[in-house]
């Protein structure tokens, strides 16, 4: 349900940058979303189709780049993607873990069309 607010933010950022570049329309939007960010692609797409209507972003393709969580063991240095029910190091069993990636939540780029 929070996807509506998020989709509105995406539209606003995309339109601001497209207008600055004198774009005729936006053809694609590239989103980077880490595993720890709870966002449903389908839901964003659903709201996108509604709110981008009659803007220069109408019909833009939403490209979701999903970043899996990646952890690193502080004891043995093992790097691993955690499974859903255990986070400890799969190699040595340590709970001393640092999180390398998975918090990402940003708009990376847009593709625009210009007149000339």
């Amino acid at each position: 349900m929070h996807e509506l607010a998020i989709t509105e933010n995406i539209l606003e950022i995309a339109l601001t940058h497209a207008n600055k570049a004198n774009a005729k329309n936006i053809s694609a939007i590239y989103l980077v979303i880490g595993q720890f960010s709870s966002v449903l692609d389908e839901s964003v797409q659903f709201y996108w189709d509604m709110i981008s209507k009659d803007t220069i972003a109408q019909g833009a393709k939403l490209e979701f780049k999903r970043i899996p969580a990646m952890m690193s063991c502080k004891e043995c240095g093992e790097q691993f993607s955690p499974n859903a029910i255990e986070y400890e190091c799969p190699k040595c069993g340590s709970n001393s873990i640092s999180i390398l990636q998975g918090d990402e939540f940003f708009l990376e780029a847009i593709d625009i069309d210009k007149d000339e």
């Binding site: 998020i6 933010n9 995406i10 606003e12 950022i13 940058h17 497209a18 570049a21 774009a23 053809s27 989103l31 939540f105 940003f106 708009l107 990376e108 780029a109 847009i110 593709d111 625009i112 069309d113 210009k114 007149d115 000339e116």
Partner: peptide, 14 residues
């Protein structure tokens, strides 16, 4: 003409 604009902006920035 087709352009890619690099943005890299936090979606929750506003």
């Amino acid at each position: 003409m087709n352009d890619r604009i690099k943005i890299v902006q936090n979606i929750m920035g506003a």
